[in-house]
Design a protein around this nucleic acid. Structure first.
Lengths: 194, 194
DNA sequence: CTTATGGTAGACAGGTCTGTCTACCTGTGT
DNA sequence: ACACAGGTAGACAGACCTGTCTACCATAAG
């Protein structure tokens, strides 16, 4: 029965995501997940290892989802723009599987673990590398890109900026605004291509 | 003697900033600030109102600092690029008054208070509006900008993206990378100007 | 000299936190 | 028939949390 394990992770994610990892207690998770305390501690060593599992779970869900959105479009520029369309859906709560938007779980969690060598911080860092790799792969399909590394940096940064803007400023249009600049970056010959 | 009050706010900021507001207890703040508990509660009603004061304090410090960096340069494009130079100094801990970099305190705090109507969330939102206004003012000095509102959006988003990238990916070059795009945005006639 | 102000140290109440443990229940494979 | 895996409920220890309170100290103004 891995059913309970999954239930724990999903409930913990929901609570951690919306209130922060330190603000949520084990007992709250147990109550909402309808799971006994003993069961939790048979699956996980501690709250910290539950958090680790939650980070892995969200990483997989999120990357899979984004990958699918990318795969729907033609490789290259359309696929890259699809990233921003996906963000737009996420920000406006049109992706139930990601749950109600409250920024990026990994940015949020990272801010609670400033120590770069802590487990959570490193997992967040690795998640961001994986997402960056998705963009990188699509960009590799484009010819004549003047400075591909910088362009990946810019698209990633634009993505992070849109997430934060949607969260803190409450600007639900953030993804579409960012998309417009992304499109120009991928079109303007003087900017990114020779 | 407002001295103790200031000491409390500065110590609380440091701890909140690097560990999150929920992870830090009152007693820890008192110990590090060398202040008695009674004194804290004579200045503030509760931990929540201390946090409010800390948010105001950081807002003022940060906005003043950025404004000064902007004022050093010629109004318009040089002033706007100075924002990214300032970020670069911040990310690389060359601004002692802002304390060791751990992302944006307001983004970090916001993620612990998802409820849009909560006090902390609103204060974070207002801080971001003030920073945006600084950029807006400089942009107003430029002529022939095709879509000034969108351009402010882009510069702000780029700034947020750089902060998050420096924090989570540990990319200390983030500000300079963003600066390069900002410069193109403010130069390319086909992009932002007629 | 007295009174007010602003501070110290820290005990304390009442609650919450994590993690352990006892005692019990249920379904399945052999 | 029986062992066992995996679950339930929840008491409990020990630590830590916020916020109140007592008792005391120092300085400065009237």
């Amino acid at each position: 029965m891995t059913d309970k394990r999954r239930q724990l992770i999903e409930t913990a994610f929901d609570l951690f995501y919306h209130h922060g990892t330190h603000a949520v207690g084990i007992n709250e998770i147990l109550k909402q997940a309808n799971v006994a305390k003993k069961t939790l501690y048979s699956h996980f060593d501690s709250k910290a290892s539950l958090l680790e599992a939650v980070l892995h779970y969200r990483d997989e869900r999120f990357v899979d989802w984004l990958q699918q959105r990318i795969n729907r479009e033609q490789a290259g520029k359309p696929a890259l723009l699809a990233v921003f369309d996906a963000l737009d859906d996420w920000f406006n709560d049109r992706v139930p599987s990601l749950t109600a938007f409250n920024g990026c779980f990994f940015i949020n969690t990272c801010s609670e673990y400033a120590d770069v060598w802590s487990g959570p911080h490193q997992l967040c860092h690795e998640h961001k590398k994986r997402v960056r790799a998705l963009i990188e792969t699509q960009l590799a399909r484009l010819d004549q890109v003047r400075d591909p590394v910088w362009l990946v940096d810019m698209l990633s940064m634009l993505k992070e900026g849109a997430i934060v803007t949607a969260q803190v400023q409450g600007d639900r249009q953030a993804a579409l605004k960012a998309r417009r600049l992304a499109e120009q970056l991928l079109t303007e010959p003087g900017l990114s291509q020779k």
